[in-house]
Amino acid sequence: MTLLHDPGQRTEVGLLRPMDAETSQDFIPAGLAALGIEADEIELAVIGAAHQLFWPPILELLSFDTSAIPVERNLDLSQAPPS
């Protein structure tokens, strides 16, 4: 019989793995690289500082289920929202 996969990897496939801290810190260079965006060391330091500031509240925002809040159609910021 010929195996089409390596049995040693089976436990890895399709299972959730927690992201470790090291992987999380790769987010910036990996994200920029994936988009084909270059950044020098100073820019990376700036982005890192911004990330440190913005990411915790962004994660908090992402944890909210906002599906019950409708988006205003024809948003008119010069007036109160239609009740």
């Binding site: 994200g31 920029l32 982005i47 962004i58």
Partner: peptide, 17 residues
Amino acid sequence: PIGRGLLKYRVLLPAVA
């Protein structure tokens, strides 16, 4: 460098946020 870095960071902001 602050201006350049912040412009580049913007594209990493998640759409869901």
